[in-house]
């Protein structure tokens, strides 16, 4: 005799529960959290390093850097002036999970006001995992071509903000920030966008202003 038992539970419920716990913890600590996702090589680390340099002395920033291997990124961000930097190596897993973030928070110093989570470079899976963040940000680079939003729509739909990076390369690439933005807005019309070049510094002011307002709870 077999019987059917109703379950009605989310498969990733454990991640959602951990994310809720994290959100409560971040709220209690007064830390605003931004989860940044992109393809590998879009410039997350370079943009964050320049961001941290610009905000140094004005905003106390902590970073969790996710990669399959190496602690390269956490070192760069620490050198850039992050108050606190942790590296997570997933050993192959293609996204960060809330429990990983939870386990990495040990020893986070008091006074951090903005925590930036640099997710694994991947345009598919990170979108499915809530990390307890206040804002989910997609970083796109012109070097990827403007077709990425429509090839990987799940990521662009999961985000509230889009940073279009490497805008200094428009002429060399023949890809414009306008075209990238147009494609992205067709996938998710509610995206707020920034345009940056981490290399020349163009556009960093408004991006940093936004992060500052996020830390103030006014994002």
């Amino acid at each position: 005799m077999t019987k059917i038992i109703k379950v009605e539970k989310k498969i990733l419920e454990k991640n959602d529960i951990a994310a809720t716990r994290l959100r409560e913890k971040f709220g209690a600590l007064g830390i605003a959290v931004v989860n940044i996702m992109s393809s590998p090589g879009a410039g997350k680390t370079t943009l964050l390093a320049e961001t941290i340099k610009k905000l140094k002395g004005k905003l106390s920033i902590g970073v969790i850097a996710g990669d399959i291997a190496t602690d390269h990124d956490a070192k760069i961000l620490e050198d850039a002036g992050a108050e606190w930097a942790v590296q997570i190596n997933t050993g192959g897993r293609c996204h960060l999970e809330a429990v990983m973030v939870e386990e990495s928070l040990d020893g986070i110093p008091e006074g951090i006001r903005l925590l930036i989570i640099e997710n694994i470079g991947n345009l598919v899976c990170p979108a499915g995992y809530d990390l307890g963040e206040n804002y989910t940000v997609m970083l796109g680079a012109l070097t990827e071509g403007a077709d990425k939003p429509k090839k990987y729509p799940g990521m662009y739909r999961a985000c509230s903000h889009l940073v279009i990076n490497k805008i200094d390369l428009e002429d060399a690439l023949g890809v414009t920030a306008d075209s990238y933005e147009r494609e992205a807005l067709e996938v998710n019309p509610s995206l707020a966008t920034f345009r940056t070049s981490a290399k020349t510094g163009e556009g960093l002011d408004s991006w940093c202003d936004w992060l500052f307002s996020v830390a103030d709870g006014k994002g």
Partner: peptide, 24 residues
């Protein structure tokens, strides 16, 4: 659990948090 705390404040250097699971 090992954590890479590359913090200028704490100055401790530990290894990264390592997981080993593949594929979504």
């Amino acid at each position: 659990m090992e954590i890479a705390l590359l913090s200028g404040i704490h100055g401790e250097k530990r290894k990264p948090v390592v997981y080993n699971i593949r594929m979504h």
